[in-house]
Amino acid sequence: MSARHRIVLTVNGQRVERDVEARMTLADFLRESLDLTGTHLGCEHGACGACTVQLDGNSVRSCLIFAVQADGARVTTVEGLAVKGTLSVLQRSFQQHHALQCGFCTPGMLTTAQAMLAENPDPSAEEVRRAISGNLCRCTGYLPVVAAILDAAAQLRSEAA
């Protein structure tokens, strides 16, 4: 029952090779096998969004995917968002807009928002709200989060122009 499976994947640009039990979720793999504890686990059934990471560029719930399923994939966690140790535009915008209080939901907010901006660089406030509708914040920080994402989008657009 506890056969282990060899997986090879890329996490935040680094090649990783490990043996995992099939039942280990990607979230537990990131946190326990790789010590990437920035990925937070809230509900463990896909409702809270705290564990959101990017799998091959798409935002996904890492509590609802087994690590063995990520064999061969490219995973980006919140630890992979900073560029050479410098906060990304989106992260800096969260800091400037005070878009977090306790910070528990922040990794999921950031990974979700970054994937959204890659698809839609010029979102409306409504589109931003919809994009983060699956990320629960219990400090009631949604307004600054929306402001931070919109501001980051504007900065990224002017950088690209």
């Binding site: 896909g46 969004g49 959101t52 799998l55 798409n58 935002s59 996904v60 719930r61 609802l64 995917i65 979700t112 994937a115 959204m116 994009a131 509708s133 699956g134 990320n135």
Partner: peptide
């Protein structure tokens, strides 16, 4: 249906 990260899977 749910949210984007759920619909991605």
């Amino acid at each position: 249906i749910a949210h984007v990260p759920i619909r991605n899977r």
